[in-house]
Amino acid sequence: MRDSSVRNRFGTTAAIALTVSVGAVLLSACGPENGDSAPTAAPTAAPTAAPAGTAPGAAAPGTAAPGAPAASGSAAPGGKEVNGTSAANHLTISTGTKSVALNGTTVDFGTVVRDLAWSPDGRKAAFVSGNGDLMTANPDGTGKVVLAKNPGGETWSHPTWQHATADPSVTAGAEALERYAAVVFTSEKGGTLRLEKVLTKSPGATPQVLTPGTSDGGGDPVPQPPQTGNTWANAGGHRGEIVYANTPANEVYLYDDYIRPVTRDLGRGSQPALSPDGEHVVFVRSVNGHDHLFTRSTQGDQKAEKDLTPAAATDYTQPAWSPDGKTIAVRTPDGVSTLPADGSAAPTQVSTIKGLPSYRP
Rank of each mutant, 00 (worst) to 15 (best):
G122F: 03
A182W: 09
S129P: 00
D167L: 10
R194V: 15
A174M: 07
L177S: 06
A117D: 14
M135K: 12
K197Y: 03
D121F: 05
S187L: 11
S187Q: 14
D121A: 13
T155P: 00
S129Q: 05
D121R: 12
G152S: 08
A174L: 11
P168H: 12
K149I: 11
D121P: 01
P120Q: 11
W118E: 01
G190P: 01
S169L: 11
T165G: 14
L195E: 08
N138G: 01
T165S: 15
E196P: 00
N131V: 00
Q162T: 02
H158R: 15
G173I: 02
G143Y: 09
Q162N: 10
K144Q: 15
V184Q: 13
S119Q: 05
G191W: 12
A182N: 11
F185W: 07
E188M: 15
T142K: 13
M135L: 07
G191L: 08
N131I: 00
V183A: 14
V183G: 09
S119V: 06
D140N: 14
L147C: 00
V145P: 00
E178A: 15
P120H: 11
G141I: 07
T142M: 04
V145H: 02
A137G: 01
T186G: 05
A126M: 04
K197N: 11
A164M: 02
S187I: 04
L195M: 10
G190W: 08
L147V: 01
K124R: 15
E175H: 05
E154V: 15
G122K: 03
N131S: 11
K197A: 02
D167G: 06
W156Q: 02
G122D: 03
G130H: 06
W156S: 00
T142V: 04
T171F: 10
A182I: 05
F127E: 00
V146Q: 09
K144W: 04
T186P: 01
S157C: 13
M135V: 13
A164H: 05
V184G: 10
A164L: 02
E154D: 14
G152T: 06
E175N: 10
W161K: 04
T165L: 10
A126Y: 05
R194A: 14
V145S: 00
S187Y: 00
S157F: 09
S169K: 13
T160L: 11
E188F: 10
L116H: 02
V170H: 07
